[in-house]
Design a protein around this nucleic acid. Structure first.
Length: 494
RNA sequence: GCCAAGGUGGCAGAGUCCGGCCGAACGCAGCGGCCUGCAGAGCCGCCCAUCGCCGGUUCAAAUCCGGCCCUUGGCUCCA
């Protein structure tokens, strides 16, 4: 069974073939001009799921994910409270927040998180190569890529050069030869006028040029937006990578330009598979910083927890748009609860005296085997995580049925079900099965809850149901879910 | 205007590449029943789908072809 992926470059589903046993994966990362929101996290999450699945299938994944820490929007925030007085300090502030968020989301670490500010020499080298080869030219201290020298321009986004030119605004005199040329190097610092466009309205405008500049053969200046990804990708993964992942909103111009400048410089194919993640929608628009309709990752983690958030992202295939709303997130919450409860039910059944090694449930055994097989087929079908999740939920139903239907449990099958939850749900999906406790206080808390339940049980036996219900309601309000069963009450923390 | 991705039940969202197992998955919401002192969870069952519209191909179309309508994203580094 082989993996097939939808490649934006060809617009078709293709069988994935890595260049070898390892997979070179580049993720077009975040511009650190603010904290990350759930839209950014969706990209990271799907890159993470791809990473995990490729490893599960036996590949050695070399995952590189950049931070763009040189940008007008970052410079525009200089001087804001607690952010710092220079571009690097502002960027560092957000980088550390983002790393905190990534850890919170239980993302697998990338091999490298390269930053633009640390790759200026490589960027300058790459631009020089392009100038030497006649693909770029200097103009007033800036350097532009000459689109007319790259025949394949537009191959990713299917844009026609003539069409782009006719719609480009060329009313003013430009230092570019052609309206579709794009900047590789920009002379000077960020001007106050530029910064003002990204400055928060309630803050004083900056009066002096801001942001870092670096020396270059063309004078002091800053790198253009697109060149960084080419330089960092080549530095850490070589001329040709296997998979390039990014948001669908970046297909044009960003990724198109990456291809042009990279392939013009090396003559080699830049990325073999281009995978684009659909955008997160809220109220019919994409979630974005500029629209102000976003939800910070950190806040979402506080409110819902990592497993609910991961389950949320697991309910839509990466290539589709996904809708964020209170309803869709609470659906994810229910899905995750259902999975976790089934897992706990399996664990409890295993530990109970009714579990027998000599009992054989054909239906449960078949269900476990089919879950593993169908899960794998779904993931290999262009990383269809929702379908794969449906299989895991199917296993949850099978476990619940088994526990509900029979008096003696099939110990071995239950163990295999538990392992399946842990392998597929835990290792591949990054959900925390079996990791209930999250601190030393938990055991004390558990003892206290048990004490309350003992008191409540006494009230029930005495027929004082009102008192018993009050105790249960109060526990529920504290986030302790109580369930009465045949052998007394059990509980779990929300 | 151009490019791209979509339009599937109350919601959400698979399936569309490779037409038949789709009388449309998984789930959420809703409604019955079992269980329970009650509730929850779980189990069983039900409800809700002219698969955007029109036409075509085919024994057969959510799936292929053509046209149209609508939604989302992008159309560049600062004019």
């Amino acid at each position: 069974m082989t993996l097939s992926v939808t490649n934006t470059l060809t617009g078709a589903r293709e069988e994935f073939e890595s260049h070898g046993d390892e997979v070179l994966l580049y993720v077009c990362g975040l511009t650190v001009s603010d904290d990350a929101h759930l839209g950014h996290a969706r990209l990271w999450m799907h890159a993470d799921l791809m990473h995990r699945w490729l490893e599960y299938e036996g590949y050695d994944v070399r995952h590189v994910e950049n931070f763009t820490d040189v940008n007008e929007k970052i410079a525009a925030r200089i001087g804001e409270a607690d952010l710092g007085d220079d571009e690097a300090t502002v960027a560092n502030h957000f980088v550390s927040d983002v790393i905190r968020d990534m850890r919170g989301l239980n993302l697998k670490r990338a091999e490298v998180y390269p930053r633009v500010s640390e790759h200026i020499p490589e960027i300058i080298d790459l631009i020089e190569t392009l100038v030497d080869r006649g693909h770029a030219y200097e103009s007033n201290g800036s350097v532009y890529f000459d689109v007319s020298t790259f025949d394949d321009y537009g191959k990713l986004s299917n844009q026609k050069l003539e069409e782009l030119e006719s719609h480009a605004d060329d009313g003013e005199r430009s230092e570019k030869r052609n309206p579709t040329d794009f900047a590789l190097w920009k002379a000077g610092a960020v001007t106050p006028e530029t910064a003002a466009e990204h400055r928060h309205a309630d803050l004083d405008p900056l009066t002096d040029p801001c942001g870092q500049t670096w020396e270059s053969p063309w004078g002091d200046g800053r790198p253009g937006w697109h060149i960084e990804c080419s330089a960092m990708s080549m530095t850490h993964l070589g001329e040709t990578i296997d998979i390039h992942v990014g948001g669908r909103d970046l297909v044009f111009p960003h990724h198109e330009n990456e291809i042009a400048q990279s392939e013009a410089a090396t003559g080699a194919q830049f990325a073999r598979y281009w995978l684009h993640v659909g955008l997160l929608q809220t109220d019919g628009d994409k979630m974005s910083s500029s629209l102000g309709n976003f939800f910070y990752v950190a806040d979402a983690l506080d409110e819902f927890g990592v497993d609910v958030i991961r389950t949320f992202y697991l309910s839509t295939a990466y290539g589709s748009e996904q809708t964020y709303s209170e309803e869709t997130i609470s659906e994810a919450e229910e899905r995750w609860n259902r999975l976790e409860r089934a897992y706990e039910a399996a664990a409890e059944a295993c530990d109970s005296p009714d579990a027998r090694t000599k009992v054989e449930s054909e239906t449960l055994r078949t269900a476990v085997a089919e879950t593993r097989e169908d899960f794998r087929a779904a993931m290999n079908d262009d990383f269809n995580v929702r379908e794969a999740m449906a299989e895991l939920l199917g296993l949850a139903s099978a476990v619940n049925r088994h526990v509900a239907d029979v008096d003696e449990y099939d110990y071995r099958a239950l163990r295999e079900a538990i392992e399946t939850f842990e392998d597929l749900g835990g290792d591949v999906f990054g959900l925390s099965f079996g990791a209930s406790g999250d601190g030393g206080d938990v055991s004390v808390a558990e003892d206290l809850v048990q004490l309350v339940l003992d008191v409540r049980e006494a009230e029930r036996e005495a027929g004082n149901y009102e008192r018993a219900d009050d105790l249960r309601d109060e526990l529920t309000a504290l986030g302790v879910e109580v369930e009465d069963g045949e052998d007394g009450a059990t509980f779990r923390f929300e």
